[in-house]
């Protein structure tokens, strides 16, 4: 166990407490404390984000800004109803009460479903550290990570237009199960059914949640139907490395990706799935 547990009451105090020692920032604790319990992490100090004023949900200029330390369970609200499917497929109730949106960005694959959803939303992060505050696109965050002693303080995105959001996760069990494949997408079609804008993010295919440029390129300008969605999924299955873990083999992930891409994009109700 750690030698000290700090409970700073402001963002600035969090940054100061993180400085210098082998400390770890802990938000909900479902990843960081678990790692300590398992003997995989040995921080000298735990710096809790619980009291630092980093929780809460605000709207301005049509954008939604969510504090990094906001528990997943608090995302269940009418103005975020499009996220209900992500929340329902995420962990179990007690984990959702503890785990936070910011913390989930640090979850190793095949966890981190909100990273997948937020990539499709083209979210950006508010980051604070010893040298001040900055903003970083989530896609960049997965490439560069954070500098020493920096923390994510908030997540910002535009809510999807009605009817454009898609989320589907292939799992081993119906509930509380990590992603075999997770598909998040925003897809807009014009009057003729041609795809005019599309963002697709995937979980279960790489070392972190990723956008799928090949799937997006394959769909743009096409008519959204079973054939085009499956083809985009096949392109993604070839392009992304996929991986083998206790949930599924890389072969299986590549095999089901086109199927779940099609089901995600067409919004096929579960009961009628082929």
């Amino acid at each position: 166990m750690a030698f000290a547990v700090h409970r700073p009451e402001s963002m600035e105090a969090v940054i100061a407490a993180l400085d210098g020692t082998a400390s770890v920032a802990v938000s909900g604790g479902t990843l960081a404390i678990r790692a300590i319990n398992e003997g995989k992490s040995f921080p000298l100090a735990i710096v809790s984000l619980r009291r630092a004023g980093l929780a809460g949900i605000a709207q301005d200029d049509g954008m939604i800004e969510i504090g990094a330390a906001t528990p997943i369970a608090e995302l269940v609200r009418p103005d975020l109803a499009f996220l209900d499917g992500v929340i329902a497929s995420f962990g179990a109730p007690a984990v959702r009460n503890m785990a936070t949106l910011g913390g989930n960005l640090f979850a190793p694959q095949p966890y981190g479903d909100f990273g997948v959803a937020l990539l499709a939303l083209d979210a950006s992060l508010a980051i604070a550290g010893p040298s001040g505050k900055r903003r970083l696109p989530l896609s960049k965050f997965y490439e560069t990570g954070l500098a020493s002693n920096e923390i994510v303080t908030g997540i910002r995105f535009a809510p999807p237009a009605p009817g454009t959001w898609r989320w589907l996760k292939a799992t081993r069990r119906a509930l509380n199960s990590a992603a075999v494949i997770a598909v998040a997408a925003i897809i807009e079609t014009d009057r003729s059914g041609t795809i005019s804008a599309v963002r697709i993010a995937l979980g279960g295919v790489d070392s972190h949640p990723v956008r799928s440029p090949v799937a997006e390129a394959g769909l743009l300008g096409q008519v959204l139907d079973s054939a085009s969605a499956t083809k985009a999924g096949e392109a993604a299955a070839t392009f992304h490395p996929c991986f083998t873990d206790t949930y599924a083999s890389a072969w299986y992930r590549r095999r089901v990706l086109p199927v779940f891409m099609r089901r995600a994009l067409l919004g096929t109700p579960l009961e009628t799935m082929p």
Partner: peptide, 20 residues
């Protein structure tokens, strides 16, 4: 599982200082 301020949480993932 225990209830902290009425919310179900996992007491193995909570350093006790945080429930002060």
């Amino acid at each position: 599982t225990v209830h902290i301020d009425g919310v179900a949480m996992l007491s193995c993932l909570l350093p006790a200082e945080l429930v002060d």
